[in-house]
Design a protein around this nucleic acid. Structure first.
Lengths: 188, 188, 188, 188
DNA sequence: TATGAATGAGCTTTCATTCAT
DNA sequence: AATGAATGAAAGCTCATTCAT
């Protein structure tokens, strides 16, 4: 039941965006009565949050798996390229949901997204610390934060803006950008 | 009158977001009758578009002014820092509007925002070409696109996420990132 | 529920005419919420169309039943009188609805009304042909059309104008008129 | 000024019907401010009444002129044909206004129309009395009423329904109908 | 548990009318 | 006299939510 509802909601959200998603429409699509919907979700927002939450979870799984050694401390160019490439692929799979997620970020499912980003921040921070050792001159938290936002949003922009640029070229440049920066931020 | 309405709409949009902005609410806030609103704006969307448009215009003006020599081809670290710093300041001034603008990107005022970003793309492309000369090995369009998105979205993320990081530190890192990358992308 | 709504709408339409019938007014009169109305009718027009449609249906049923032999080819004075008399009675029953029907003829339920009139045209044409045989000198379609409009509109005028004339007298004259004409238009 | 307003209103009413005629639209069309309109007409209805009133007046003038001897007592077939033919022509000139007049009959300008019809009733009654002498067996008022309504509404129906019938044929039949009836209703 | 009819506040928009200028 | 900005009641309609069954 919950599955049917969430699946229907996913479709509707992807097709019609946040505002175009009415509880009645979801219920109809799920072949369920509007009342039933409220047996499992307190309100509309909770339902859509669930949809976006699942999306973020799936995204997390895919991206985490791309980190060699499960989010390990590897920051070599090859590893970076693998992660970035996988990230773009993952985001490109459901652009409609990505768009809704980007639009509605702070209100509902934003928490999950931010939480995920922060986890990546931590992993990156750890990796930097591991590589650099205790170096008070490099603000690793800030470095990690900037790098993670850069990769995240450039990838998202590429998927949503659909600029007239080759995917591989953009991925190359993004990797070059990140590698150049991280090389600079590694202890000498 | 138009000023009163737009000002009220600005407040309401900032406070309650796009969907929470009802024409009646704006009219009430402006101390004006709902009908008056339609003497100056054909519909709700036109009103909100006007609000976001003004915001984008103000942003543009401030950021453009930050480019030494009027968006000139200067890409020195000092110039980059000036622009980035001004960008963060400008974005930080009305975070609520920025949030709505980010949410509603593709529908309404998004055009303006995208158009502005593309103009910056062009300026950056020109600057790179100027600096590099005709070098077929560097894909200047992609470089410009990546750099501009990076700066734009890292700055936006900083304003909207309010991470526990010093502003100057983030700006420093962002500049370091961009400078390192552009140095690499300059002809040898 | 549908019954309650339609009944209320009937009252309101009869009392206040087409434009004076607002969905809220109907809902209030029916003791029902405005939303409920839209569970059964897609919009205001559909509701009023339903009201007028029912009225036309009832009218049709009554008048058709008055034709001896179910709209048969009988055009004797007695048959004419029966039909005309019944027509006036039927129309006189809900003058307010008749007025709205006349006002709104071409837009909505007018189709039904026109369609009904055309059916009567056909019946009359057939009856005339049956009586006359193939007589190229008498334009039976035109004869039928003129006769049917005459009876229809004189009856309607009598009901809506309420002239200071005895009902039976007007019916007599109308029948005389029609009989004289049809006698003339019969083959010699 | 009044002329400009009424002329504009005439156009708008003919183009968009009663409901589609808003005071603002009329004012705009007349190149006049909405306020000015209320200097000459107490409300919207008064304005449209004026429009329809003028239309009825023009109709009256044309039709009256068609009566040989200025609405004289002549009821010969030739005279009937002249009047009927002129009536159809007159009505066919502004079908849009005729439609509005028919739709809105009882509320506003209906008085004028009814009053005109009654004047024709009187003329016809007088003519019948003149021809028949004091004959208590023929209810001249009813005869006149029926004849006038017949001619009026058959003509209107022809103009508004646009049936697939030759104009001259319908006029012929209508005249035949009237003549047959009146011959019968003349004193022997 | 599941239903779905019913709700009603709230939405965007129109337009006849007024009144300070 | 003429203006036209301003009005505000009311319109048609939507949809998140409830509750008797």
């Amino acid at each position: 039941m919950v599955e049917r509802i969430v699946a229907a909601a996913e479709d509707v959200v992807a097709e019609r965006g946040y505002d175009g998603t009415s509880t009645n429409r979801v219920a109809t699509r799920a072949g369920v009565s509007p009342g039933s919907l409220y047996q499992y979700f307190p309100d509309k927002d909770a339902l859509i949050t669930e949809v976006l939450d699942r999306y973020v979870t799936a995204l997390e799984a895919r991206i985490s798996a791309a980190f060699p050694g499960r989010l390990g401390p590897d920051l070599s160019p090859a590893s970076i390229r693998g992660v970035v490439s996988e990230l773009v692929d993952a985001l490109a799979e459901r652009p409609a949901l990505l768009r809704v997620l980007s639009e509605r970020l702070p209100r509902t499912a934003g928490h999950r997204r931010v939480a995920f980003a922060q986890r990546i921040d931590n992993v990156t921070t750890t990796a930097l610390r591991f590589r650099n050792g205790p170096d008070p001159l490099v603000p690793v938290e800030a470095v990690a934060w900037v790098v993670v936002r850069t990769v995240e949003h450039v990838a998202i922009s590429y998927v949503l803006e659909e600029p007239d640029l080759e995917r591989s070229m953009v991925v190359d440049e993004l990797c070059t950008l990140v590698s150049a920066y991280l090389r600079l931020r590694a202890a000498p």
